[in-house]
Simulated scan of single mutants.
Amino acid sequence: MSISTALQGRKALVTGATSGIGKSVARNLSRQGATVVLHGRDQARGEAAVKEITAEGGNARFIAADLADADDTLRLAAEAGAVDILVCNAGLYEFTSTAATDAASFDRQIAVNTRAPFLLVGALAPGMAERGRGSIVLVGSRAARQPAPIGAAYGASKAGVEVLTRYWAAEFGASGVRVNTVSPGPVHTEGVQAMLGEHIAALDATNARGRAGAPAEIAEIVSFLAGPASSYVNGAVLFADGGERSTLPA
């Protein structure tokens, strides 16, 4: 485990931080000295994640909230308080055909993946701007640029994230607040494992590296975008996908 002080004195809010990429992001930011507010829906999982961080000497707490609910999302922002780093990682995906995606499913995906970051940025970025510093990192998806026969609603919700990145970079950049997105390719997470089951090995054939990524690898990129080493990076969408293939290998 590497320890750094690059983010000493900074406070971060990470959504979807009880598993997968979000949990790795929270731990990585803590290891660099940040005080971390973890978000999730499950209190027990949240408390367990906080214990892991504090066992390493970090400073963390957990707030439960449902990002599909606008009022609960704003409550999360209020309870988190002033933050220097916002990582919008929480995501909802329902990979179905357009005909099989009803209005409720579409609304859920847009609410969690696009509206929740919009509300959190609206609530927290002005404070960053007043203080003259801040970093917002959104977690996108290659689904925003690589169409598939299913998952159109999810792809649309993540395309919205990329558009918002550029708008917010323009809106807040002059005030010292940077906004960037990391766009992962396939990553071995608990959610992906549950979705693919025995077909999980197929992920390793989807890119030029010949393997899917690990949550910790994405967390390193998020920490780079959140920290001072990326001080001149603003409005960028950083692809972390191992190198896309146009077709799968035979």
Rank of each mutant, 00 (worst) to 15 (best):
M1E: 14
I3S: 14
I3C: 08
S4D: 14
L7V: 08
Q8S: 14
A12N: 10
T15Y: 02
T18D: 05
K23D: 12
A26Y: 05
R27H: 12
R31E: 10
G33Q: 06
V37I: 10
V37P: 02
L38K: 08
D42Q: 12
Q43S: 15
G46C: 04
A49H: 06
A55L: 02
E56F: 05
G58Q: 07
I63N: 05
A68T: 15
A68W: 02
D69P: 06
D69K: 09
A70D: 13
A70E: 12
A70F: 00
D71E: 15
T73D: 06
L76I: 01
A78Y: 03
A78K: 15
A78G: 12
E79R: 13
A80W: 00
G81L: 04
G81N: 07
A82P: 09
I85T: 00
I85D: 01
L86S: 01
V87D: 04
V87I: 09
C88A: 09
G91A: 10
G91L: 00
L92M: 10
E94H: 13
T98C: 03
D102A: 04
S105Y: 03
S105M: 14
D107W: 04
R108V: 00
A111T: 02
V112E: 03
V112S: 00
N113L: 04
N113D: 13
P117V: 06
F118P: 09
F118G: 11
G122E: 11
G122T: 12
L124F: 00
L124Q: 02
A125K: 09
P126T: 11
M128Q: 01
A129N: 08
R131N: 09
G134S: 09
S135D: 04
I136M: 03
I136W: 00
V137A: 08
G140K: 01
R142D: 12
A143P: 07
A143S: 13
R145C: 10
P149H: 11
I150F: 10
G151S: 03
G151T: 00
A152T: 14
A152G: 12
K158E: 03
K158Y: 07
G160T: 06
T165V: 11
T165D: 09
R166W: 03
R166T: 09
Y167T: 15
A169S: 13
A169E: 06
A170T: 10
E171G: 05
A174E: 15
S175C: 06
S175N: 14
G176N: 07
G176A: 02
V177S: 04
N180T: 06
N180P: 03
T181V: 06
P184T: 11
P184L: 07
G185M: 01
V187A: 02
T189M: 02
E190H: 02
E190P: 02
Q193F: 07
A194N: 15
G197E: 10
H199L: 14
L203K: 08
T206R: 15
T206W: 11
A208C: 13
G210S: 03
G210K: 08
A212C: 06
G213P: 01
A214D: 15
A214C: 13
A214Y: 15
P215W: 07
A216D: 11
S223F: 09
F224Q: 01
L225I: 10
L225E: 10
L225A: 08
G227K: 01
P228M: 04
P228I: 04
A229F: 04
S230E: 09
S231K: 07
Y232K: 13
V233N: 04
V237C: 08
D241T: 06
G243Y: 10
E244M: 12
T247I: 13
L248F: 12
L248R: 08
P249T: 07
A250V: 15
